[in-house]
Amino acid sequence: MLLQRVPLGIVTIWIVTMIVFAATQLLPGNAALAVLGKNATPERLAALEKQMGLDQSPVAQYWHWFSGLLQGDPGRSLVNQQTISSLTGPQVLNSAALVVTAGILGTLIGVAVGLVAAVLRDSPLDHALAATALAILSLPEFVIAIFVTVLFSTNVFHWFPAVSALPPGARPWDHVSMLVLPTIVLVIVIAPYVFRMMRAATVEALESEYGEMAGLKGLTKRQVLLRHALPNAVAPTVQAIGLNLLYLAGGIVVVESVYNYPGVGQALYQAILNKDVPTIQFLVTLLAAFYVIVNIITDVLALMATPRRRLQR
């Protein structure tokens, strides 16, 4: 299974790099023009194009770029001629810190609340949780962000900064207070998904015949939950967590921009504003690779948690 998925994932990423490259080729103007701006004369343009390799065929350009990527060198930014890795590296790290923190917290909260709701299913608490989850799911994340900011920063409590603009070069964990609000927003956004999947999967297991059977074997409710329901709730919940991580990779753009947090979202936004094509190519490829890798990991984990799919008769 893993042996199938990994090569397939690599092929997928490779195809993505081609699509990304082709798409940027279709953009009007070219990189040399973007660099030179108003200073462009035909001579200087031709010289720069030659220097940047833009006079070569698209295939040769792609190969140049792709082989660079494989060697860990995504090229240089058009804006300031810095290497893209040194330019975007800290921002990728900032986003990763946010995604990992929010992913772990959101998953833990979703799983725990989901278990509680499943055990107390059809109680007033369960109904209240279900309604809350639905309400959150139906709100766009910037609304949640505004609400969280109003509550914890500007109007009600004044606990955390409303803007999370880390100073350049600073590491996110040196400024934890700046991480708090974006993390809270992302946790609020993802926890309901995990909660709903966890609750549904656990209820299904508890009300299944093997759940009933476990009770009739003399297991306490807690034992039935932990030993019989949980192992069967793992696979669907892992899938939900994976989907959430993927969602985070996109949802983070909005949240980063609300809090002015210097992450991948902001880097991509800036690159697009600046028509910084190599940087756009790199970041998009990076996000695609993240999608593919998370997909492979969740599929494999879910498979490992499902003996019926893993083992032959």
Binding site: E209, Y210, M213, H228, P231, P307
Partner: peptide
């Protein structure tokens, strides 16, 4: 003893 052990035995254990 259940009617259908296929669903009464825990598939994950």
């Amino acid at each position: 003893v259940p009617q259908d052990p296929g669903t009464a035995l825990n598939p994950a254990r």
